[in-house]
Every structure is written in structure tokens, then in C-alpha cells.
Nucleic acid binder design. Structure first.
Lengths: 156, 156
DNA sequence: CAGGATCCATGCCGATACTG
DNA sequence: CAGTATCGGCATGGATCCTG
């Protein structure tokens, strides 16, 4: 990565060196179950149905799929004991445990700021449920506004 | 961890107090464009088409949708200047800027560990392209194995 | 027990056409 | 310029049935 001259490097950096990977990882663990599984495995090694029961709501298919992806990406190890009945254990790898650090940080941030987000949503949603438009209409001014009233609400 | 009576508090904490929110936020900004937009706006206030041109690949619809969601969640501010032609500016809120911190941390982690993930994937994928199964078969042992050969590959 | 295979609903996202 | 409206493809995820 050496474009030489630094014009447009902001965009270039943002697009190709920092953001693409970000979205990539967010897609990696940003699906419905990955983080949940990783955090459970962060506590202890677990078997398939043990995870299944623990997670509550996950289907067998999604548990399999998600575990397979996590294994592929190097976050969990799958160990088969060829007994009867079979026994399969899933464990976090070092990489998985390390991933847990920034993910936990993000989790903590969400925990802390959840209320602010919810409040922002309430304010936003209230705009649409209000009866009509009221614009103070300062005489002659053309200052910035903040949304008027669209033809339709986007949530029903 | 706590040998007393463990109540099942582990699972409960994981499910309701920590992980659901995590997935929630990951869904929030874990979509295809949110992080990219947030990081662009982290550099400066931008107008609609300015963002559109900067991001390269985003459709007008997705830019609108993603911006609307970010606004709803309180991460960006939308300001309309009722001029002709219209002028709409998007800015990160304080909340948005704060979100950038843990997200940037995650981004950094990915940057650093990208190679390890890629290598894990290569190793994983190679298993499927190998011609046949070879199990050392330690005499009489029934130790753990690591995947044999399924009927089909999942990325065929 | 630990999955594989299949069918199907939903939602994300892109492409296109049109508006104030 | 900054959107809205609409259609359709494709991936995600759930439910069900079946196997070793």
C-alpha cells in the first residue's frame, strides 16, 4: 500500500485499509449468534447440546453453522471424541479469547450507553407521531431546520 | 468462579444483561455501511452526495436508509438548509464520536490479527480439498480427532 | 448425542424510475 | 441536490425430518 502522493489518502485509507476490514469483522461476528456463543465459550468449554440448551432460542442449524464459521475463522476448536454416543467439545482458541477483549469493550460501551440510544430513538420516533408540523417561521430567516413531516411514516 | 450456589446466574447474565445488548449494537452498526459512514463523518461534516461519492459502491437507497437509522439511534445529526437547491449536512453527535472509540479498537484488533484469521481459514479450507482421509489410528486408542470428511463441502 | 439435508419466511440490499 | 417509491435477487435464519 504505497500510493506515493497523499491526495485523497483519507478516503483511500478509510475505504481500503481500515473500514473494509472493520465491516468484515463485524460481519464475522456481527451475525445473530456468534458473540453469544463466543461469550459462553469464554466461560468454559462446552458440548454441542450444552450450548444448545444454554443459549435458548437458537436452532440446531444455526448453532451448527455459527460454530462452523467460528471454527473456520480460528476462534473456536472442535474436538470429537469417537465414543458412543458421540461427544463433541467446543473451546475458544487463543485468537478467540483475544477477540473477546475488544468485543467485551464494545459490550461494555453498549451497556453504559444503552439508555442514551433508547432515548434518542424515542425522541426520533415521537417526531412522527406528532399531529402536525409547527414551524416557528422566524420572519425572513432561512436557518437550518430539522425535518418536517414526510408523506408517510416508515414504520407502519 | 463461584463455588457457592451458582444459581445459573452465569447463563442469565450472559443472556439478558450482556449478550443481548451486544448483538443489538452489533446489529446496529454491524450492517454493510454504518461503520463506513460513521468513520467518514468522524473526519468531518459531510453532505449527502459528498458521502455518496466518497463511499463508492453504496446505493442512494442504502445511504439514505443507513443515515436515517444512524440518526434515529442518535449517532448522527441531520441538518437541512432550505435553500435551492437543498443542502443537507450530516454530523456525528457526541454519542457517535464516543461510539467510534470501541469500534476503532475493534478495527485495530482486526487490522492486527487479520493475518491470523486468514491463515486459520486457509488451514480449515485445505482440509476439504485434501484427497482422502488419513487417520493414524493409534492402536486401541480412542483419543479425540479433528473432523474426518463429510459427504460434501459447504462452499462447493 | 451431534449433526446433515431441505423447505420456506423474512429482510438486506441493489437497480431503477420519479419528485420537490 | 436530496431524497421517495417500487421491484426483485440473494443471503440469513427458523422449522422439520432424517442419520450414524
Amino acid at each position: 500500500m504505497k500510493p506515493g502522493h497523499p491526495d485523497h489518502t483519507d478516503s483511500v485509507n478509510l475505504q481500503h485499509e481500515r473500514c473494509r476490514p472493520v465491516h468484515e469483522i463485524l460481519s464475522l461476528v456481527g451475525d445473530k449468534w456468534s458473540v453469544l456463543i463466543v461469550r459462553f465459550l469464554g466461560q468454559k468449554t462446552m458440548r454441542f447440546n450444552e450450548l444448545r440448551r444454554a443459549i435458548d432460542g437458537i436452532s440446531q442449524k444455526m448453532l451448527t453453522t455459527t460454530l462452523r464459521n467460528l471454527e473456520r475463522d480460528g476462534f473456536v476448536t472442535r474436538t470429537v471424541y469417537p465414543t458412543i454416543p458421540p461427544r463433541v467439545e467446543y473451546t475458544l482458541t487463543d485468537l478467540g479469547r483475544e477477540l473477546l477483549v475488544p468485543v467485551a469493550a464494545l459490550a461494555k460501551w453498549v451497556d453504559i450507553n444503552r439508555e442514551r440510544i433508547d432515548e434518542a430513538r424515542r425522541r426520533f420516533d415521537e417526531q412522527w407521531s406528532e399531529p402536525a408540523v409547527r414551524i416557528p417561521a422566524a420572519p425572513g430567516s432561512a436557518g437550518p431546520r430539522h425535518r418536517e413531516q414526510p408523506s408517510r411514516n416508515r414504520h407502519g
